[in-house]
Design a protein around this nucleic acid. Sequence first.
DNA 1: AGAAATATTATGTGCAGACATATTATCTTT
DNA 2: AAAGATAATATGTCTGCACATAATATTTCT
Lengths: 233, 233
Amino acid sequence: MSASEQTNWQSVHDEVLRRIHTREWKPGDQIPKEVELAEQLGCARATVNRALRELAAEGFLDRRRKAGTRVSTHPVRRAKLDIPVIRLEIEGRGQKYGYGLLLSERRTPTPEVCANLGVSAKSDMLHITSLHLADRKPYMFEERWVSIDTVPEIVDADLSAISANEWLVLHAPYTKGDISFSAVLATETEAKILRTHAGAPLFLMERMTWEHDAGITAARLLFAPGYRMHSAI
Amino acid sequence: MSASEQTNWQSVHDEVLRRIHTREWKPGDQIPKEVELAEQLGCARATVNRALRELAAEGFLDRRRKAGTRVSTHPVRRAKLDIPVIRLEIEGRGQKYGYGLLLSERRTPTPEVCANLGVSAKSDMLHITSLHLADRKPYMFEERWVSIDTVPEIVDADLSAISANEWLVLHAPYTKGDISFSAVLATETEAKILRTHAGAPLFLMERMTWEHDAGITAARLLFAPGYRMHSAI
DNA sequence: AGAAATATTATGTGCAGACATATTATCTTT
DNA sequence: AAAGATAATATGTCTGCACATAATATTTCT
């Protein structure tokens, strides 16, 4: 225990984590109860509670009323994937961001979009494709459907000036969302747009959002070859 | 404000979120200070503080001392990617998990591993490849390097019975980790192992972990075609 | 006017004490 | 012995209060 220091919740957090890392407390072990730890570390129970609560949220501890607190046997590591607006992601790396609207049409959705987003086959939607550039090179190709029924204001937005995603972030916050990642091969058309060749491996991110049960948007984001998404854990 | 209900931090959280969603408070807006909200909602400031703190952690609010609390203009959505042990991921879907050790050799690392993990070129490492199966079908091919200098106990582990990852989770918790995702094409060898064809698009997950500055392991996890990683946001 | 010192203020955190709640352990009844 | 009722207990949360800290606003000095 690194004594002499001030006992705040952060130091309790670090001390408990240290004991886990040094295997003083092994996976599966029950750790002292809050009151004992508080006494041991010279602080209030509330302070210990705060620290242990954070550690549980981070996946290091399992806590249950009456049963006590144990070190996780399978620390489900939660990679905190920050999904920023593409523009900020690119600018954050010091590159120049570019954006071009390729297509914007008003039409009924494809059966696939209907099923995934849970909207009617006859609903009024905006179908948008656009290309995002980093330092003038193709970075991400976006195909998006936006429900005009749910977000009628979108028809007045100038989507050649601001990307649909950024517009939606500002004007249509969602209550529920889903995101998935996979690997696909570039088709002829996609390859042309991303300036690569058909059959190149592309990283695909699919996003859908709802406001309660009303579908807002479904997007298919295809990243140029070489893209890597990463995160600290 | 949905009155009549009990005022706990969760209900404050939900009420604030509701005001953001209904655009009563728009992105960029400053929201009432904690004392005011507490008075308004009939609870202690500490309770409001807890709610707002969570909302800030979730990315909905930006808070700064003295400056106050504002609704995020760019809610950096944090996808909470749970990275479970593969076995649990497969079993969780009700499929039968299978595991086979393909190779286990003690040797010096490749220059690439050295550079990424920050270990010496002459360090003693374990090089392991294995295949994970779901319902007897190839699911993920794993190539891994483990530093024997950092985790000497690994040489005594029976890695044909337990996967290296599971062993490490139980015996060598890390303090720092990095994970990245990308799309690659299957090589001849990889295709053979995963029972697909060369040039198939594969989802690649690369993981590295350290105990402070000592490299523990570097792993390259190649998922069979069709794999989708997904998450709620 | 511009710089430096000072005051103000909203959030951040700590504390003690109380009660709520989920879960386990124990006792009672059949 | 099995089932049901009851007690015990560790965590979960709320409260009121105090002081810390960072950032802004204001005043003072040159």
